[in-house]
Design a protein around this nucleic acid. Structure first.
Lengths: 117, 117
DNA sequence: TCGTTTTATCGTAAATATACGATTCAGCAG
DNA sequence: CTGCTGAATCGTATATTTACGATAAAACGA
């Protein structure tokens, strides 16, 4: 008998107001790899803080993030890059500034993956 | 006005059959640090696989885990150590073997922390 | 006691991550 | 065009992670 692969939505916590449901499986090799990538990106206190900041305020200028953290500008930029490469955040160019915001879909995906454990 | 610090239970997903609720806050510097540690421990595909294995089967002999993964015994042992140091799993000595199992409390804690994002 | 089995630890090489200052790049304002 | 501001990237030093084989340690069974 085929093992039934779980799909997301096993826990639709915050009633998830926006976006459509993510139908990709939350188990299997691909899901494991994805979860590992997302978890790794979150695996540093500074990056957790950044995500928290971006969730609280809807979006945030890079400079404001630098002000909130006790780290050099270049270091914050590196952390932002890690989060961006994992897909957790997005940066929109706004004049000379860059406005960062979380990717709700990916954050939801992370929650679904962790929830499946 | 004081900012209300969130406490866990914002999402009590799998009806959480065992154990008492974890009343520690899911925000703040300590929570960030804790989430970073747990996420980092999960930040490798092999370790995600191990956790999945231990959740599926209730517990698992170290050797069985080695059999399931395409890695050397010493490497698996190292990954187990990382997970153990993060508190996600526990190893009980059973004769010459070691029986590993997840720490449900810590796994629940991780879910609460991720859910708070 | 002597092997056998099972797991942990050691030693090590290669890769990645982390932090910083210095520099570069991009987008305005004048 | 020139200079200013904000952000990214470079260069670099140090630390951590990851993988492996080899070795040690622990718990039995004969």
């Amino acid at each position: 008998m085929a093992i039934p692969i779980k799909v997301a939505e096993s826990c639709s916590l915050p009633p998830s107001t926006d976006g459509k449901p993510d139908l990709r499986p939350v188990e299997g090799r691909d899901a494991d790899e994805e979860l590992a990538i997302l978890a790794k990106a979150l695996g540093h206190p500074a990056r957790v803080q950044i995500i928290r900041l971006l969730v609280r305020r809807n979006a945030c200028i890079c400079g404001d993030i630098v002000d909130e953290l006790p780290l050099a500008q270049s270091t914050v930029s590196q952390h932002l890059k890690v989060l961006k490469e994992a897909g957790l955040i997005r940066g929109e160019i706004d004049g000379p500034r860059v406005n960062y915001c979380v990717e709700p879909r990916v954050l939801r995906r992370l929650k679904a993956l962790v929830g499946s454990l």
